[in-house]
Every structure is written in structure tokens, then in C-alpha cells.
Design a protein around this nucleic acid. Structure first.
Lengths: 389, 389
DNA sequence: TTGTACGCGTTATCAT
DNA sequence: ATGATAACGCGTACAA
């Protein structure tokens, strides 16, 4: 365990300054004592309810100022039965290298030449979750809530999620993050909204994405507009509902254009850029050494996977879209800045967070509201990787 | 106000399912009553402390299961004087269009051709804050805390920050987010760590970045290795401490290489890509129409600003680095994927969040700890935009 | 206009 | 091994 005290570049400042942390926090009683009034008067001043004489108010306010009084959220929450916080549970993502590495030491500035190696994958799942957080925080603030973000990672993930559930008024859960049993348990206490994934079985509120329709529209475009017949689907994890929805859309499209409908995805990755690269290398090897022809188009389950393919294709001199057409799903930034830019199905990720908060707010206002499942529409963005331009 | 009920694509599920939200949350007493034991026993089972007979434990556990009991964080926090949460205050950023727009309606999938227009700027301040959140959340989880994220935006920003301060055990404040007075007030109750910006005056804990040294090393490289003499600094907001630190580094470098040291930045923007573009357009116009020669190099206060310049230079056929060398600061993803890639000073943004949490944890463990100010080192990343390759 | 007193749900201390 | 009970800090009816 690296102690903060062991850090480089550390400067000690004076041992006192604004706010003396050693002293216990002031309470209503302390303020009342200093101002010479009762606790209820202070409470009225703080909450702005009820009648308080102007003189008394000023007296109390200066006492509050002097003591640096901040009301205890725990005590307020206890009586109000409301914490003013919403929880957002994200699935465990493998921490990227920058999180695992010890903090760099030495105060000198390193000057290094940055070779064009692409990163292993982006933070927050290619920013997908970053956008969900952003949308949720924005909507939460507007609704008068703060957002507590938690990544359900071991150890003790369950215990700590339960703990969170005791400290917030509502929960947004990215699908697949919590075991069904835990989810069912905590929903006895507070409303929960599932985000992404398939529509849940248990009668939960849900905000989903038009996975199938998006892929279907994309694939139909590839076949009808570009005349590609040999279209292959590159899957993610086998048990991902998003993946199977998208594959369902793929099959629906193939069926609609009267092409052979595969039972299984042609390739299976795991949503990561690294695995996309691995699959691509095998494809290229089979092609170069085994004489296996490249497919007409690769429809990937997500952008990260597609970008992994693109890394390898670009490195190996395989032209996209000339030799093979490549598409993704999500609309992350990396697909907009790659070359060629990636044709993809864009999902409005901030909206997922926003709508989840909206639903939560409605449930909180009226607990008897029936459960609802809404779907946010997607857009197919045609860019260079499918040869449109 | 758009009601959730007005949304498209909505499906109503049954009005009951897992967890009946209409019923009030179960309490310790409810569990005790159902299990036929006292509240103390239930408390012991839940917290895992003290002796409980195996039979009794099973009895209690099944009651907990049946009622979906989740301990009240408010009540726990009240007696424990600890909430297990850390707060992260981010400065108000103008919401991007996706947050302001009403949710798209209609369930059909739009298929559109995406022209290569660059976005007005990225979410979360070019992901800067996203990375800080990521680092902070990771470290917080490891330390046993959850992270509550709040953007201090009007209205009622002050009141709500004070509210937050009453609900968390410690506060991470991105510098400049809170008025000094408020910061001083809340630090009476809990420890706060400032992140980024200049070292604060008031004796706060602080995690900063080697702004000056980073820019200095970069500029010295430009002059010494590339022989550029006409180097100009493009500033951000006039009152930003990060900006003035970086400009200080710029001046130190010019002094070190015996070049004229400017008093003021050559140009002043506001950290945004859009303003970078605006400045660039004026520069190009002066050059083309006024015959003003382009500078040898533009050293921008941050990557977003530099990318704005690059947008215009690329559009106008001005070669980077051939006609003018361009550099940034931050190391955001956009500078790694632009063409040419952007030479920059990379700051380890996740480390800012991580170290802030580390300090908070130390302060929480020992409130008498002296204040400290640490600086994370930076790296100059040489890429194509300065002509290294 | 101000003060008193009770309860919110939990933990901890003490008895049993 | 289990139960009774007193805080914890605040809101709020109700009394003054």
C-alpha cells in the first residue's frame, strides 16, 4: 500500500488553515447554544420554513457562519425518508493500465516520442458509460438529486451494492450488472431502472435501445445499396442480451433481403478492441496463407471490436472499404476519428441515463405507477468504412 | 416538462412484479418482529458482529430475505458518523446539444450520411473530467467508498453543494468550482482536496499538475531540436490558474533559450475547440489577405484549442507541421487520433482523481495530518504535429 | 414568534 | 446467546 506520505513532489503546508478538521462537526445544538436560541429556531432558519424574527435570523446566521455549520445529511435523511441521491451501478470493467500502474514518480518532465500505437481499448468501455453518467448526472441535478456512481467490482460487490441501496432513493442499473436475486431484494426498498440489455423478465422499469432494428437497417443498406452479399456478423460475449438482439436484427435483415440466414455468428469476440484485433489477425492469416477469400462485409457488434479489425486491416494493407466493408455499433468517438471513419449505428447514450432518471423521478413521485419499458431510437451513420462516400 | 408518460415507444408492464414499491421499506423492527427476536439480534446478524446462534441466524436471514430488508444508510450514518461516500465537485460546463435536445421520437431507424463535421467540443471537457471521475471512482471503491458526482451548476449551486457536504465524508473539488467562502465553510465539517489549478492560498490539500515544467520542456524542444524561433503562446481564460502556470512555463523556456520573452500571450481563447477555430480563422485571414506571416509554432494552452486550430488549418490547406507547428496540452484522445497527431503535454488525469482520494483517505484516518500539496508529473509526447517524425 | 419533546432506524452498552 | 435501552442529529407537531 503506497502511503500518500511516500509520494514524491510533496510539500507540506501549515498544519492549520481554513477549517480545523480535528474538531468534531458542529450540530444544530452547537449553533443554538452560540446564538442563544433553541434548536428549532435554528432549524427554521436553515430550512427557511416558519416564522423567524429578522434579528434572530441574523444572530443564527452569524453563528452558523462562525461554526461552519453544515446540516447532517444522515439525520435529515432519517426523518425525511429521502436522501436526495440516486445510485448508478455500472458493470465491472477491467481497469485500464493507468489505473493499475503506480503513480509515476520523479518530478522531471519526460520527453518521449509517441509512436502511433493504438490503446488497448478506451476507458469507461469506449466512453459508453461515461456518456450514460453524463446524461444521468445532468437529469438528476435537474430533478434535485445528486448521482452516486458505483462500479460493481469484487470483492464484496454484493454487500456494497446493498449498502448503496440503503443510501439512495433510487437505483439505475446497467443491465447485467447485478445478480437477479440482489436486484429483486433491493427493489423491495427502492425503485430501480434497468438500462440497456434486453427487456428484463421480472417486471422492472427499463430503458433499452433499438438494437435489432438498428442492425437490420444497417445490413439492409449494405445489401441493397452496396450490393454486398457476403455479410458476416461479428458477435460479442455469448450471453450478452445486447449481442443477441443485434444478431437477431442481422438475421432479420438477411431474411428480408432473401439471403441465407446464419444460425450462429460467423465470429465471436468479447466487445473489446484487443479481441477484435485478434480475430482480424486470424482472418488475415487465413486469407493470405490459406487462400480463404475475405468476406464482403463485417458487421461488428460494437465499435470497439470494429476498430480492432480496422487496426489490423490498416496495418496489413487491407483496404477498407475496398477489400472489405466494416461496420460497428455505438457511435463512440473513436469511430468518428478513425481512418476510414466507421459506419455505425449510433445510440444516444446520454439519453439512456437521462430517461432512466426521468423514470426514477416519476416512480419516486408516485410509487404506484405501472412499470414501463421504453426504447430509445438509434441512427445509422453512413461513413467511409462502408463505401458510401 | 416532458413527462415520462408522454414518451414514444413505451410499453406498460404489469403493475406488480418483483418488489412492491408501494409498501414502505422494511426496518430492523419489522425483521425482528417477523423472526420473533429482538432488534439487537437482527443488527448482529446484519453487521456480522457478536454472537448469534446458528438457528437464530437462519431464522433472521430468512426474514430479511422475505421482507427484502436493506439497512437504512441514513440511520447507520447517523450513529457511525460516517457515510462511506466521497463527493466530487466538477465545474459547470455548458451542456452539449445532446443533453439539451428533447429525446428523439419515433421508433423508426433513421439512416443518414454522416459528413465529416467535427463536434463542437467533447463531452466532460474533452473527457478531462471523465478521466478524473474514473480515477477517483476506482480509488474510492478500493478505499471502501462510493463516489458522488456533482456538477456545480445553477440554480442553487451553493445550497446543493452544502447539502452534498452534509452527506459525504470528504470532498474532492476541481479548482475554481466553488467560491472560496463556501469552500472554507464546508471544510469546517469535512476534509476537502482541491484538484488542478494553482496551489490554493488557504491551506488546503491539493493535487496539481506540473503545468509550467511541461510547457517549458515542450517549448525548449521546439526551439532546440526544431530550430523554431517564432513561437507563440495561445492562452485560455485570463483568470485560469492552469493557463497562467502554463504561460509561465512558456516564458521560462523562452528565457532559457535566450529568445524574447513576451509579457502577454499572443492569442487568447477559452479552452474550447470552437474558439480555437475562431482564432485560427482570423490568423489565416490575416495571413492570406493581410500578408502577415504565419508563426513558426503555436503552443496552445490545451488540446481542444489546438484541435480547433487544426480543424481550420486542415480545411484551409495550411500544412501542419510544414507551414506551422502546433502543440497542445492534456493528452486527450482527440489529439491521438487527429491527423496529423498532436504533439502535447500529457497529464495523467486518472491520477489526479486517484491521488485526491488517497489524500482524503489519509485525512479521514488521521484528521491531524498536515495539509499537503502534491504535483503529478507530466510527459511531453512528440507526435507529427511538431515535425518530429 | 419561540421553545419542548418525540420519533426517524440503527448501533453499542449493558444486563440478563 | 439474547434483549432492553440510550444515544446519534434533525424535523415537526404542539404548547407556550
Amino acid at each position: 500500500m503506497t502511503s500518500v506520505l511516500a509520494l514524491h513532489n510533496r510539500e507540506l503546508l501549515g498544519t492549520r488553515g481554513a477549517g480545523d478538521r480535528a474538531r468534531a462537526a458542529a450540530t444544530l445544538r452547537d449553533v443554538a447554544g452560540l446564538a442563544g436560541v433553541s434548536v428549532s429556531t435554528v432549524s427554521r432558519v436553515v430550512s427557511g420554513t416558519g416564522y423567524v424574527a429578522a434579528d434572530t435570523r441574523r444572530l443564527v446566521e452569524s453563528a452558523i457562519e462562525k461554526l461552519g455549520y453544515v446540516p447532517s445529511g444522515a439525520a435529515r435523511g432519517l426523518v425525511a425518508r429521502r436522501t436526495g441521491m440516486l445510485g448508478l451501478c455500472l458493470p465491472d470493467m477491467a481497469p485500464t493500465a493507468d489505473l493499475l500502474a503506480p503513480t509515476r514518480t520523479g518530478s522531471g518532465v519526460e520527453v518521449i516520442t509517441d509512436d502511433a500505437t493504438a490503446p488497448d481499448g478506451s476507458s469507461w468501455g469506449g466512453l459508453y458509460f461515461g456518456e450514460v453518467i453524463r446524461g444521468a448526472e445532468y437529469a438528476a441535478w435537474q430533478a434535485g438529486y445528486a448521482l452516486t456512481v458505483v462500479v460493481a467490482r469484487p470483492p464484496q460487490a454484493e454487500a456494497r451494492i446493498r449498502d448503496l441501496a440503503g443510501r439512495v432513493d433510487g437505483l439505475i442499473v446497467v443491465a447485467g450488472t447485478l445478480p437477479d436475486k440482489l436486484l429483486e431484494h433491493v427493489t423491495h426498498r427502492l425503485p430501480a431502472v434497468l438500462v440497456a440489455g434486453a427487456r428484463p423478465a421480472g417486471g422492472y422499469d427499463h430503458v433499452g435501445v433499438e438494437n435489432a432494428r438498428g442492425v437490420q437497417a444497417l445490413v439492409e443498406h449494405l445489401v441493397r445499396t452496396h450490393g454486398i452479399h457476403d455479410v458476416r456478423y461479428v458477435a460479442g460475449h455469448a450471453n450478452s442480451p445486447d449481442d443477441s438482439d443485434r444478431f437477431r436484427g442481422f438475421r432479420a435483415a438477411m431474411h428480408a433481403v432473401a439471403l441465407p440466414t446464419p444460425r450462429e455468428p460467423a465470429l465471436r469476440g468479447d466487445f473489446s478492441r484487443a479481441t477484435g484485433r485478434r480475430l482480424a489477425r486470424r482472418l488475415v492469416a487465413d486469407h493470405r496463407r490459406g487462400g480463404v477469400p475475405l468476406p464482403g462485409a463485417l458487421v461488428c457488434v460494437n465499435d470497439e471490436t470494429a476498430l480492432g479489425f480496422l487496426d489490423v486491416f490498416n496495418a496489413e494493407g487491407i483496404d477498407v472499404p475496398g477489400d472489405v466493408v466494416l461496420t460497428g455499433f455505438d457511435g463512440i468517438d473513436g469511430g468518428r476519428t478513425s481512418s476510414p471513419r466507421l459506419t455505425t449505428v449510433e445510440q444516444p447514450m446520454t439519453d439512456l441515463g437521462r430517461l432512466a432518471v426521468e423514470i426514477l423521478r416519476a416512480c419516486l413521485a408516485d410509487p404506484k405507477l405501472p412499470r414501463q419499458s421504453i426504447h430509445v431510437p438509434v441512427r445509422v451513420l453512413l461513413r467511409e468504412s462502408c463505401g458510401t462516400h
